[in-house]
Amino acid sequence: MNYEQIPPETKDWTVVLRDGCPECGFQPGYDYGENVQRLRALEAPIMTAFNRPEQELYVRPQKNTWAPIEYLAHCAEVCEVMSQRLEWMLIHENPEFALWDQDAAAVDGEYLNRPVGSVKRDLLTNLHHAAGEFEKVPADLLERTGRRSDGSRFTIQTLAEYFVHDLEHHIHRDI
Rank of each mutant, 00 (worst) to 15 (best):
L124S: 10
G109W: 08
G117E: 15
A105F: 09
S118L: 10
V107K: 03
F134I: 06
R147F: 10
V137M: 01
F134D: 11
S149D: 13
N126R: 11
T145N: 05
R148D: 15
A139T: 05
M82L: 09
L127K: 06
E110N: 10
G109T: 08
L72I: 09
L124H: 07
L142M: 11
A139D: 07
W88A: 14
E133M: 11
E96W: 12
D122W: 09
R153L: 15
N126A: 15
Y71N: 14
K136S: 03
G117C: 05
S118H: 02
K120Q: 14
M89I: 07
R114Y: 00
V119M: 09
V107H: 04
S118N: 10
I69L: 07
T145Q: 15
D150S: 09
R85M: 08
E87T: 13
D140C: 02
D103F: 09
L141V: 05
D150W: 13
H129C: 07
G146S: 13
H92D: 15
Y71S: 12
E143F: 08
P95F: 05
R144W: 09
L123C: 03
H128F: 10
N113C: 06
A130Y: 06
S152Y: 03
M89E: 06
T145S: 08
L127T: 04
L124Y: 04
V116N: 00
K136H: 00
N113Y: 03
S83W: 01
R153Y: 02
E93D: 14
H128Y: 08
H74I: 05
V107P: 00
S149I: 09
C75N: 08
G117F: 05
E133A: 11
V81P: 03
